[in-house]
Design a protein around this nucleic acid. Structure first.
Lengths: 222, 222
DNA sequence: GTCTATAGATGGATAGAC
DNA sequence: GTCTATCCATCTATAGAC
């Protein structure tokens, strides 16, 4: 806590921590509201009201609503892809440079599915990332379209693990797996739970990782 | 063509066909713009400009922008689910009431993937349907959440075809297959084509149906 | 039925006081 | 840095002339 110097009592105090605090409050409120309600439906007014700060904060700290969106997007996708890359790297080391299909899929699927756990603190971030695929700004969609470097490693690993498959088969199957992941939205879970009459109310997320890896691996091994 | 009666030349003519034509122009323009640019980004002004009709047409013919959206949604999802139900019904008849997993998956996957063919006239409708999953109005999302009757038949057929599986396994795998389908968006194809450097530029949509059914069937049979 | 004009609401952004 | 007040653009919806 930085207490203002009494000698400065009549000067407007500048508190670096409260500055960072406001920025973080805006960031967190925006991520949460966007994740739950969608990008276009949430206004700057909604965000600042939720964060308990003044209306001008978004523009002061981030420049614009779109720039705020882009910063959240960049930070969260970087975190997710780092987590995936680390696991893939470990699997590569463990298997003398040639990880099997299952280990590759675990590195791809594991992090985002573990983020679904409501007991963790990542659920909102994952929902935000999923939403940005369909509702993002032009800048975000351009980034998604052109920046495939993190997927490059997974595609190459899968191509090496299944050299007898035609490369286009590998790419298409990777696309199918990504589809499985992108479908893990609040609304789709609700629908699944309605259909299954509560049978799929999942609380064991390691179990869900295993379900998804099992399903995806079968598709790659046939 | 209904020609106006010359006796009515000084009375404002009412042409039922031009009325229907305006309505259809609005419907088609709205579906196309929503499918390509998203629901919130397209204004009533965009729609009427694209259709070449006056600004008031949307409210006159449909009541509101949201009602127009809902009507497009209802019509297209009904068409898609009818096509799926018909194929499932045929497969059920053909297999004495007990279609195998592969036939069930073909009925689920075939219609929406055939709609992807740009040589057909369904691509826009499918993109609209996919978008409504994440960007729809509250009414549309409520319909998606609660109306699972069309999926009910597919879930029951799959449960019957794999009685040795725990029901929740069947439901989760159905969820994975739906994820594969929902990922067939313009933007995701672009990304896949970037990653594969053009290898996946698909023109054979029956081939794509087979790819997807192969992948999904493997996941159900393991 | 069509169209123009506009009402009425809401949004992002910013100037200027403190 | 914070906050209020406000500008200005844009949207949906509708009234009223034709």
């Amino acid at each position: 806590m930085t207490e203002p110097d009494p000698a400065d009592a009549d000067i407007e105090e500048v508190n670096p921590e409260s500055q960072a605090a406001t920025r973080n409050l805006v960031f967190a409120a925006a991520e949460r509201l966007f994740a739950v309600h969608g990008f276009q439906k949430v206004s700057v007014r909604d965000i600042t009201a939720e964060a308990g700060v003044n209306l001008a904060s978004v523009n002061y700290h981030f420049g614009s609503k779109d720039a705020l969106l882009l910063e959240i997007f960049r930070r969260r996708t970087a975190e997710l892809n780092r987590a995936r890359a680390r696991i893939l790297h470990e699997a590569t080391d463990k298997h003398q440079g040639h990880p099997p299909v299952r280990a590759i899929l675990e590195a791809l699927i594991g992090p985002p599915v573990r983020w679904l756990d409501p007991n963790g603190e990542r659920l909102i971030s994952l929902q935000f990332i999923i939403r940005s695929r369909s509702e993002g700004t032009e800048e975000m969609r351009a980034a998604l379209r052109h920046d495939v470097s993190h997927l490059r490693r997974f595609a190459d690993a899968l191509l090496a693990a299944r050299p007898e498959l035609a490369p286009e088969d590998v790419y298409w199957r990777l696309h199918f797996v990504l589809g499985m992941l992108h479908n893990n939205r609040f609304a789709e879970f609700d629908r699944l739970h309605t259909l299954s009459e509560g049978l799929t109310r999942e609380e064991d997320f390691e179990g869900l990782v295993k379900r998804m890896v099992d399903f995806a691996e079968a598709g790659f091994l046939r």
